[in-house]
């Protein structure tokens, strides 16, 4: 017992364990979300979706899919750059997984309590672009390359208004730490920033949400993997487990941006009803259910909206979101000056 205690007290072991903790959530979540997305899309389209695998409403369909992907041959195109091709999916996943380090699942747990948490999140989630470009370039496929170029242009552009929207929250709270931001929204749900500092932070939320959709390549901003145009975009040449890593990264990323939206604007792990049902354990529950709400919203949009064209995408970013984000920042600044 003491020896286990001693091992746990070793800071490196402890850090490694803490780093692996989000996997406990991501893996079951990804399996659930894939099944859930099939069900959401099916019911929106007058279908039932998977019904056979595993019994109740085909609950084990994504497990079967995972096994299939694991067993598939790992195809590597002969004319690809093998090293980069094999590495790319993991770089993408690392990018989205590293973001989990600063996400406060509850008041008691955050992977790494650093005082520049949100800044770190914005920085590290850009790593995804590197992986996408790497994978597409090394596939030696024109369609992949188009997908990657679109993806890079899109993610880099949409980060700017997204970060400006985040900045508005940081200006209100006065801290870059995500835990501080959550604590600043204490109390009933009308204290959440999305409602509490109306309308400035509500506008910031809308801008951030749109930008987060673009960052995770979801409809209406899914042009990097537009299946009717670019076949499968940047992961056209991937199959088997490497393809699954892209998929896992996409779902991990979806939850990461949702988690940040929840943390910044929807009170994070705070209960909506003041001190009712609050505490570290309930915090996890509230945080995850709010996050899943956003996941559902993303799915809903995906199965409803058409896709923008690449020039329209840039128009929305630079001519609509950007001015609004800037004006919003200025107003938040003025308001903070007057309020103090």
């Amino acid at each position: 017992m003491e020896s286990i205690q001693a091992i746990l007290n070793n800071p490196y072991v402890f850090a490694a364990l803490m780093a692996l903790a989000p996997l406990l959530w991501i893996l079951p979540y990804a399996l659930f979300a894939i099944w859930f997305e099939r069900k959401v899309s099916a019911h929106m389209q007058d279908r039932l979706g998977p019904m056979r695998t595993g019994g109740w409403h085909g609950w084990s369909q994504s497990i079967a899919d995972l096994v299939k992907l694991l067993l598939k041959e790992d195809l590597i195109p002969a004319k690809s750059k093998h090293g980069l091709f094999m590495l790319a999916p993991y770089v993408v996943f690392v990018g989205s997984y590293a973001a989990y380090a600063v996400i406060p699942f509850t008041s008691a747990y955050v992977g790494s309590e650093i005082n520049v948490g949100i800044f770190y999140f914005v920085a590290v989630s850009s790593l995804v672009v590197v992986g996408i470009l790497m994978g597409a370039w090394s596939s030696n496929n024109k369609w992949s390359l188009f997908g990657a170029m679109r993806s890079a242009a899109q993610i880099v552009s949409y980060e700017i208004p997204g970060t400006l929207a985040i900045l508005a929250v940081v200006m209100v709270v006065g801290s870059l730490s995500l835990q501080d931001i959550v604590r600043a929204q204490e109390g009933w749900f009308w204290n959440w920033f999305v409602f509490g500092k109306f309308p400035f932070l509500f506008i910031a939320f809308l801008i951030y949400f749109l930008c987060s959709l673009a960052e995770v390549n979801r409809t209406p901003f899914d042009i990097p993997e537009a299946e009717s145009e670019l076949v499968a975009g940047y992961h056209t040449e991937y199959s088997g487990m490497r393809f699954a890593m892209f998929y896992l990264a996409e779902y991990a990323n979806m939850f990461a941006v949702s988690a940040v939206a929840v943390t910044l604007f929807f009170g994070g792990w705070q209960s909506p009803f003041g001190t009712f049902l609050s505490g570290p354990a309930w915090g996890v529950f509230w945080f995850l259910s709010k996050g899943m709400g956003f996941i559902f919203l993303q799915m809903w949009l995906r199965w409803t909206l058409p896709r923008l064209r690449v020039d329209q995408l840039m128009y929305v970013n630079w001519k609509v979101l950007m001015p609004f984000a800037f004006v919003n920042i200025i107003f938040v600044g003025l308001w903070m000056m007057i309020a103090q």
Binding site: Q45, T219, R302, P306
Partner: peptide
């Protein structure tokens, strides 16, 4: 046509 521009749901509705 709807699916070509990215709206996937309509296809199933018209096929119905």
């Amino acid at each position: 046509m709807a699916m070509d521009v990215g709206a996937l749901t309509l296809l199933l509705w018209t096929f119905r």
